[in-house]
Design a protein around this nucleic acid. Structure first.
Lengths: 196, 196
DNA sequence: ACCTGAACACCGTTCAAGT
DNA sequence: ACCTGAACACCGTTCAAGT
């Protein structure tokens, strides 16, 4: 039996995986680079070869989060019916489900949108989410299901309501037993706002 | 000229003031208890007499933020016209203005809603904001301007859209030159959703 | 190329001791 | 009652040196 190899198989991937696990189990405040390195069995200096600092690691975690979220909502929309309402409901449920199932990660993603320090890649993937809604709205318009107007401008209030509701739910401002009901109210309100 | 007195005039207040200043100038990530103590000219151990830990200080900063925000939106609503739409617009503008003028504080407040660790006082004051909207909606209902339904359920989508839009704007997902226009679209959408 | 070991400058928090 | 000084256990980051 040989001891731990000097070179790791894929340290970057393992760092990301452990960071996300720690985020889930301990929360963002407890997440430390040294603790991750310790868990993996690597020196405190090792991560710096792959991520220039802690923020860079977190940005990458957020990036992967956005990719998963975008994939989840896209899949949901594709798996839904053909009407605008059906597709919106499916995407909205997937968005909320992701937020609630990945609270700390969702928080990280939301503050990662923020600020000048954010990487271009992160910005780009973050914009896929409103982008999906814009496409959905444009589709709904061409079918006569959604009122006219620049799709971006019609979609923005939709995204604001959805995202805002997810934030409130994650924050605990909406009691857990009412999140489903509340989402229905939010969707109903959105659909009223979109009617031709 | 006598040297710095051993006892401070009002250390708790000065700690809070400096914490907020630091939040504004450096951001949440840079904010350290030791740096605040240094700035004030007090030992690193001094804050612990007044706040049991860093989180307790931040919670109090967030609490004061909620009070200021609630006061700002209440004032705006009172200073506005008598129709539901006028009052909603005034409150919404005040909410967005506060968020943009106090980005780091607003971020802190939003994550401070979160979680089990949050103090009861913080929860209570955080609920004043949706509470205002519930009252506004109830008023609008009695005047026949807003559709019927439990006021809490009608107000929730309104709050979600408003809060969500503020978050998007603070995050930089809405370009600065479009925030005003976007808010108008959001308000219009909300009003459509509220119509009888 | 990839990682270690040791070091540096910084944290938050605690606790005896001073005023 | 309020604060200091010193200590403790922890950080993130850097850099020569090892493999």
């Amino acid at each position: 039996m040989r001891s731990r190899p000097y070179h790791h198989g894929d340290l970057p991937a393992e760092l990301l995986a452990h960071a996300e696990k720690m985020l889930r189990e301990k929360g963002a405040y407890e997440l430390s680079l040294r603790a991750i390195a310790r868990d993996i069995g690597v020196s405190p200096a090792a991560p710096s070869r792959h991520f220039k600092n802690k923020q860079a690691l977190l940005d990458t975690v957020a990036l992967k989060g956005f990719e998963r979220l975008a994939a989840a909502t896209e899949d949901a929309r594709r798996g839904a019916g053909v009407t605008f309402a059906e597709r919106l409901v499916a995407a909205a449920r997937a968005y909320l489900r992701f937020a609630l199932a990945n609270r700390a990660l969702f928080d990280l993603m939301c503050q990662a949108y923020t600020g000048e320090r954010t990487s271009p890649e992160l910005c780009e993937v973050a914009r896929r989410l409103p982008g999906q809604l814009v496409a959905l709205v444009a589709d709904g318009q061409s079918g006569g299901e959604v009122r006219t107007g620049a799709p971006e401008r019609v979609a923005l209030p939709v995204f604001a309501a959805l995202h805002g509701y997810a934030r409130l739910a994650v924050s605990g401002l909406v009691p857990a037993e009412l999140t489903e009901l509340g989402l229905e109210d939010v969707i109903e309100s959105i659909l009223r706002g979109c009617r031709p």
